[in-house]
C-alpha cells in the first residue's frame, strides 16, 4: 500500500512534464516522419500517400544542406578558437575582482534582442558600413554582406558567450599549480599548453562545441539577415516550405534528414571526443 502511494506520487510529479514531451514533441515528431512520405495537398499542407519522392528530391535544396553542413561546423570551430584565449585570460590571468564583472559583461549582450544585434551587423557590413570606409581608403568594390563571411561572423558573434562559459568553467577548475609544475619541469609555454592546459579543459571545449553546433545547425535568423537570399541554411528552407510555399511533406523530409544528420554527427563526435578520454560524465551538463 505504501509502495503504491509512492509510485502514485512519483507519477503525479513526472506526469505533466511527460505529457508535454509526449503530446508536443514525440507524437509530432512521429507525425513529421509520416508526413515525409506523403504528398503536398492541393491547397498546400499534407495529403496521405506513401512515396519516397520527397527524399529523392532533396537535392533540389542541396545548397541549403551544403551551406549548413559546411558553415555550422566551421562556425563552431571558429567560435572555439576565438573563445578559448578569452576564457583562458578570464580564468587564469584575471584577478577575482575584475573576473565577475568581465564575465557578466559577456552575458549582457544576450539581453539586447538577438535580432537587433544581428541587424546591427547588417548595417556594419552593409554598403554604408565598413565597405564605405574601405572605399575612402581606396579599396572600392568590397562586398561583405550576403556572403559566407558575413554569415560566419554573425555565427561567431551570436554564440561566442555560449562557448566561453563552459571553457571558462573547465579552466577555472584547473589547478594552477599544475601550470607552475609544468614550467618548473622545463616545459615551454606551448608545451604546457599542449600537455596540461588543453587536455584538462577539453571537456569544456567539447560541451561548448556541442551546444553551439546544435544551435547553429538549426539557425535561421543569421543567414536570413546576413546571408540575404544568397547564403541560406536548412532552417531557412524549412520556414519557406512550412510557412510560405506550404509544401509540408517535402519540408518534413528535409527536417527528418537534418535531424538524422545531426544525431549521426553528434554520436560520432561524442565517440571521438569523449569516448576515449573517459570524460563523458563531466562533459554532458
Amino acid at each position: 500500500m505504501r509502495q503504491g502511494r509512492r509510485t502514485g506520487t512519483t507519477a503525479l510529479l513526472v506526469g505533466p512534464a511527460a505529457a508535454f514531451f509526449l503530446l508536443l514533441l514525440v507524437l509530432p515528431l512521429a507525425v513529421v516522419v509520416i508526413y515525409s512520405f506523403g504528398e503536398r495537398g492541393a491547397a498546400g499542407g499534407y495529403s496521405p500517400a506513401f512515396t519516397f519522392d520527397n527524399y529523392l528530391s532533396l537535392a533540389t535544396r542541396g545548397q541549403a544542406f551544403l551551406n549548413t553542413l559546411l558553415l555550422a561546423p566551421l562556425g563552431t570551430l571558429l567560435c572555439a578558437l576565438v573563445a578559448f584565449p578569452l576564457a583562458y585570460f578570464l580564468a587564469v590571468k584575471t584577478s577575482p575582482r575584475w573576473r565577475t564583472m568581465l564575465l557578466v559583461l559577456i552575458i549582457v549582450p544576450f539581453w539586447a534582442s538577438q535580432l537587433l544585434r544581428i541587424y546591427a551587423w547588417l548595417l556594419i557590413l552593409g554598403n554604408r558600413g565598413i565597405p564605405s570606409l574601405l572605399d575612402l581608403l581606396g579599396m572600392d568594390g568590397v562586398r561583405l554582406i550576403n556572403t559566407r563571411f558575413a554569415v560566419l561572423l554573425g555565427m561567431v558573434y551570436g554564440y561566442l558567450p555560449l562557448m566561453v562559459f563552459p571553457i571558462y568553467v573547465s579552466l577555472e577548475k584547473l589547478d594552477k599549480r599544475l601550470l607552475e609544475a609544468s614550467a618548473d619541469l622545463g616545459a615551454g609555454a606551448w608545451g604546457t599548453f599542449r600537455q596540461v592546459t588543453l587536455p584538462m579543459s577539453i571537456a569544456g571545449v567539447a560541451t561548448g562545441s556541442l551546444l553551439v553546433f546544435i544551435l547553429l545547425m538549426g539557425e535561421f535568423i543569421i543567414p536570413a539577415l546576413l546571408g540575404g537570399g544568397k547564403v541560406f541554411f536548412i532552417g531557412n528552407a524549412l520556414v519557406d516550405l512550412f510557412l510560405q510555399s506550404r509544401n509540408w511533406p517535402f519540408g518534413a523530409a528535409i527536417a527528418v534528414s537534418m535531424v538524422a544528420i545531426m544525431l549521426a554527427t553528434i554520436a560520432l563526435y561524442m565517440r571521438f571526443m569523449l569516448g576515449r578520454s573517459g570524460l563523458r560524465q563531466q562533459a554532458l551538463v
Binding site: V14, A18, F21, L23, L24, L25, V26, L27, P28, L29, V31, V32, Y35, I214, L215, M217, G218, F220, I234, G235, L238, V239, F242, W248, G251, A252, A255, M258, V259, M262, L263, I266
Partner: peptide, 27 residues
C-alpha cells in the same frame, strides 16, 4: 526513457520544434 526524452528535447533544433508543435496544434 525519460532521460532520453530530455536529451531529444535539447538536441532537436528550435526550427524542428516549431514544425512539430505547428503540426501537433493544426492536427
Amino acid at each position: 526513457a525519460f532521460d532520453a526524452l530530455i536529451y531529444v528535447a535539447i538536441m532537436v533544433p528550435g526550427v524542428v520544434i516549431g514544425i512539430a508543435t505547428l503540426i501537433a496544434f493544426v492536427t
